[in-house]
Structures are given as structure tokens and as C-alpha cells.
Amino acid sequence: MAPRERDEAEERERCITGIDGLDNILNGGIPRGNTVLITGSVGTGKTSLCLEFLVHGAIAGENSLYVSVTENSDKLLTNIIPYDFFDRKLIKEGRLVFIDLPVIYDKLGLEKLEFEFEEVNILITAIGNIVDELKIKRLVIDSITSVCYRLKTQENIRDFILKLGAMLSSRGCTSLLVSEISPAEERYSHYGVEEAIADGVVVTGNLERRGDLLRTLQVVKMRGTMHSRAKYVLDLTAVGVLLVPLLKGGSVASAGG
């Protein structure tokens, strides 16, 4: 088989995010089944990006699940109402589902503040059951940092993300895991292991240029596809996340981006 033919044969099916700029950066979308870390400091657009990914999925007929760890789902819903393309019917018809993780903890009797190996397995099995039952094809956990907080050791965190990723990938479910980092952190995740295990890493940030603060996005890793590694400026609008290339102009000074 000629190399080009082989490339085409090996081309993985894409999960089109519906965010035009991001799909262009990713050469057509996220390879289906990938587990992608969406990482950045507060106010950089992580949650908006994830919500839009799910809403577009639900519109395209892919059942989508948002697992909220820290914020109440009802409060989150108020944030997606301004989207022109959002329709509450998606929720009523079960194509877009919101679940609060603390509710799952309660149902599973996971009351300990510190999870061991056994609890990690119980949690992953529970998420797997929900994915199967609701036929979920897109999943967001916001945030994985808050889940990892209970896992304490790097071994447990590695084990959790590896098992979670494998479980979701085997079901053809493309997932975004939100990771919170402080602007000063030089790595892409709070515990330092999430970025190595995830199939992809998308970094959102703030970039200060001559007193102006720009929201930025950069795909630093994505297995299974060629992609741009350049930095883009993003805007959160009623028509969704918009992206344009960051202008260089020979005068850029980075600060926390």
C-alpha cells in the first residue's frame, strides 16, 4: 500500500466539535474516542468551550453528558441560554444531560474525602454505566482537578485517568476533562500527570500585550491527527466560541498565557 493510501486508511473518524476555528486547528475535529485535557486558569473560557462542544454534539444527534463537580448544573444552564443555537428541547429529549458528581458520590456511598483504589474503580464503573445507559458519545467532566483532589497520590490519579480514558474510548465516547491551573503554573495540569496521560491537551490562557488582556487557545497535543500548535485569540459570543490567529507583530510579551 502506498504511504498516502495507508494514511487515508488509517485516518481516524473525527468528532466534529462544531467550533469552526477549533475544528480547523484540529484538521477536522477531535479523533473520536480521545480523552482531551482542557486546561487553563480561571476566566479563560474552558467551561464555555466544553458546553459548546456538548450542545453541538446534541444538535448533531450525539447524546452528550456534562458532569459537574463543583458548580450546580442549574446555575450552569443559565450560562448556555445566551447561545443562539441552544434549544432547551435538547435537554428535554435527553440528548444533553447534566449530572452533578456529588449526587453520584451520594448514591454510591462514596463519602470519604480520600479515595483509594477501590473507590476509583467504583466511580469509573458508575460513569461507564451512565455512558452505556444514556448512549453518551460526548462527555465533559468539569473539573477533573476537583475529582483528583480526592485521589491524593499521583499513582491513583494516573490510574483513574488511564482507566477512565480507556473505558470511554472503548465506547467511542469523546471526552473533555477540564483542568484548572493557576496562571503561574508552568505545567499544563495541577498534578502534572493528567497532561501526560490524556490523548490531547488544549490550553486556554490570558495573554497581556501592552496592557491589553487577550483570551488565548493553543492545542499543544492531540494524538491521532495533525494539528496547528499556534496560539489563537478567542472570543465567547452568542454564536459560540470564535477564534482568530494571534498576531505576532514583533511586539508580543507573554504573561500567564
Partner: peptide, 11 residues
């Protein structure tokens, strides 16, 4: 904020 001008035009 030239990028933001491009973004608003796109919007």
C-alpha cells in the same frame, strides 16, 4: 486589540 476587531467582524 486588533484580534478582537477581527473577532467582532466575524461575529
Amino acid at each position: 486589540m486588533l484580534e478582537n476587531i477581527m473577532l467582532k467582524v466575524e461575529y
